[in-house]
Design a protein around this nucleic acid. Sequence first.
DNA 1: GGGTATACTTACTTATTAGTTAGTAAGTGG
DNA 2: CCACTTACTAACTAATAAGTAAGTATACCC
Lengths: 197, 197
Amino acid sequence: MTTQATSVILPGDTRSRILDLAEDFLLERGFNAFSYQHIARELDMKPAAIHYYYPSKDDLGTAIVARQLRRLRKWRDLPRVADLPPAEQLEALLTVYDSHARHECRVCMFGALAADFRTLPATMQAELRTFNSELTAWLAQVLAAGRATGSLRFVGSPSAKALQVLTTLAGALQVARVHDATPYHSIVGQLRLELLA
Amino acid sequence: MTTQATSVILPGDTRSRILDLAEDFLLERGFNAFSYQHIARELDMKPAAIHYYYPSKDDLGTAIVARQLRRLRKWRDLPRVADLPPAEQLEALLTVYDSHARHECRVCMFGALAADFRTLPATMQAELRTFNSELTAWLAQVLAAGRATGSLRFVGSPSAKALQVLTTLAGALQVARVHDATPYHSIVGQLRLELLA
DNA sequence: GGGTATACTTACTTATTAGTTAGTAAGTGG
DNA sequence: CCACTTACTAACTAATAAGTAAGTATACCC
């Protein structure tokens, strides 16, 4: 049996519920501070059941980052994002980070994994590098277009500015975790003040 | 005996060698990914010997952050730092981060602990909050003085800008770890370009 | 109704973790 | 030279980690 009368189970549901929970724990505690037991307990299953879906923790971790990368690509190419003018594309990005800050000061995936990076499986490292590179490239292009049309203002190269902005946002969520959302809003307010013409 | 003929041992040396090594591991792997065994192996001792100096890992972790806080206060109050004009005080701060980047893309202590913050002992959390607050307050005052004398340039409040700059620096070291030093230099270059009048 | 795939559980192994306790060798002060 | 302190080691415990192998209940297909 899958589960008794308590809830209706959709096919493939457990697999994605595991991934969702693993991602929660990852963003909440870091990769080295969550275990199959944590996930199993939450789902009222045995740890071995998690291994059935994700044989090793490497697989699970890599799946989390790979899914986030797929989400990024999907989001970026969404008509309601891709067709926006540059300043509003930036605003859409900030909205994503804001939702993290509101959700119990959750850090972003990059911020959650960067510090422990050297203890991560090689496959996770590779996916995270790709994720960061693609996001930076996207923002650099947004910034360049925004400056060209006069809606965004900054000095220096778009790619350096993109790196700086993303780095600041990742860091801002970490500061929010250490203190509270106040410094996060302060930092993002500063970013808006400087960038929006 | 402390150790045989191989080296002369100073009193209190083991204690600080443990702390040094623990800090190395902390910045290298994160708090949840190093153990007393790692330190003991490096020092050619038994894990119990580490417990002799630092009864619990909480004590050890707290000692690391507390020492870093003492170092910050000492550095900040050093004549060769305190007596500098604002723009050079900022430059002195950047030099500290640069040395981290050069030292195998080491992250800063804040960046190493922020992601796993909620898994840390309460005493470490408190010390880290103090550390971050004091550093931010110091930089805010530097920025305010620099803008007043015309050597530094930025919009918004000094404390928001200080938060933003420190957050960016912490994040820049994390990016360096994930990729290499190139993006770090790009980000710090951007900071200099914007701040230095 | 039999076979097979799915979705698990039970029961285990091996490794590592933090931490404790008792003991011991070497140096120190009286 | 004796008591005491310092700085450890040896030998544990209890908990938790990732991972495996074998078995089981259910559903679906022929």
